[in-house]
């Protein structure tokens, strides 16, 4: 870890000014990912701008019935917030499925959105990696990739996005708000993360130097009955090998509305819109859920050692949707 300058941002304009569009400056919030990456040499900033104490730590209802969530709200506070739990249980569950109590106390909403992949080739600076060192190659394609991507295929990078929270946000149509020196901006979550394509080092559509200030969640009555299920290689404190965020509105045996997103299968949280199209208006049966999962996963392009993710995601989708249907029936 090389030496660096450290500044505490007094306010949002001050943070932007301190970052000053310097490519070697980084915002620091909870630090759970950035400090780790600095230790492994993946990140070597010359300046840290500490934004953790900015007044962006509120969760507030919006007039239209949604929520606005500040960027420095900790993962713990987000998951514990009564309105989050009431309106968007899938989001609270996703956050609680991630990391550990300690890390959730430190990590922030903004930082969680920006966390980097756990691909072991990315975090080992002695290895090639197109995401870390563009053009150097992707050893995961021919190497150890049993937890790599099966959807959104790119030969340049097969790493998966590690966030649980962002999978729920994808299902909830969250909008990311940011500030730049030129003024504020916003990005729907579906546009926030860029496809890996040939430029896996470009992960988000945030303008250079932008500071995430928060999220808004639009009202989503369907989310009242929602769930996050995560499968991992240990019962807790492990990254997903597959996860599903789902919300389902069933009336009279018919799916009226549905939201579905997958985690740990792509370079970004995977909104399963193809599956949603199959679901909405169809009978609320296991057959429908299997058809929906199959339609989404038809695009899967597994590598030699991660083909299991296709049946895993298929089964998990059917299971979660069936559970939600069972609840609706009660």
């Amino acid at each position: 870890m090389k030496e660096f300058d450290y500044r505490r941002a007094p306010d949002v304009p001050g943070a932007l000014a301190l970052l000053d569009d310097r490519p070697d400056a980084r915002y620091l919030a909870g630090g759970t990912n950035l400090v780790d990456l600095m230790k492994s040499g993946v990140e070597r900033p010359a300046r840290l701008v500490d934004v953790r104490e900015l007044p962006l730590d509120r969760v507030e209802p919006t007039p239209d019935g949604g929520l606005r969530i500040g960027a420095t709200v900790t993962n713990s506070d987000l998951a514990a917030h009564p309105e989050v739990r009431r309106r968007y249980p899938v989001l609270a569950q996703a956050v609680l499925a991630g990391a550990s109590g300690q890390l959730r106390n430190m990590a922030t909403v903004g930082g969680n959105l920006l966390q980097r992949t756990r691909c072991a080739y990315f975090t080992d600076t002695a290895k090639p990696c197109n995401k870390r060192a563009p053009g150097s190659g992707c050893p995961a394609v021919t190497g150890e990739h049993h937890n790599h991507a099966v959807l959104g295929a790119s030969r340049s990078c097969v790493a998966v996005h590690p966030s649980d929270m962002a999978v729920a946000l994808a299902a909830l149509d969250a909008v990311v708000h940011y500030e730049t020196a030129d003024g504020p901006g916003e990005l729907p979550l579906g546009w926030f993360y860029l496809p890996a394509g040939d430029t896996p080092h470009r992960e988000t559509a945030l303008p250079a130097g932008a500071l995430i200030t928060g999220l808004t969640l639009p009202p989503a009555p369907v989310a009242a009955r929602s769930r996050y299920r995560k499968v991992r290689e240990r019962a807790s404190y492990a990254f997903a090998i597959g996860s599903v965020a789902a919300a389902l509105d069933v009336r009279d045996g018919v799916v009226r509305d549905a939201r579905l997103a997958f985690g740990a299968v792509a370079s970004r949280p995977w909104r399963a819109r193809t599956a949603e199209r199959v679901l909405i208006g169809a009978p609320a049966t296991a057959r429908t859920y299997a058809d929906a999962a199959g339609a989404e996963l038809a695009a899967a392009r597994p590598l030699p050692h991660n083909g299991y993710k296709v049946p895993l995601m298929h089964n998990l989708t059917v299971a979660v949707l069936s559970e939600l249907t069972g609840e609706a029936a009660r």
């Binding site: 190497g143 240990r234 807790s236 492990a238």
Partner: peptide, 25 residues
């Protein structure tokens, strides 16, 4: 611990990559 034959070393050489049982297990 999984080794990558191309490099000869373990992949994910840390306690997030090498899982030992934790409380919930």
């Amino acid at each position: 611990a999984l080794r990558d034959p191309a490099f000869g070393g373990p992949v994910g050489a840390d306690l997030a990559g090498y899982h030992v049982a934790t409380h919930a297990d």
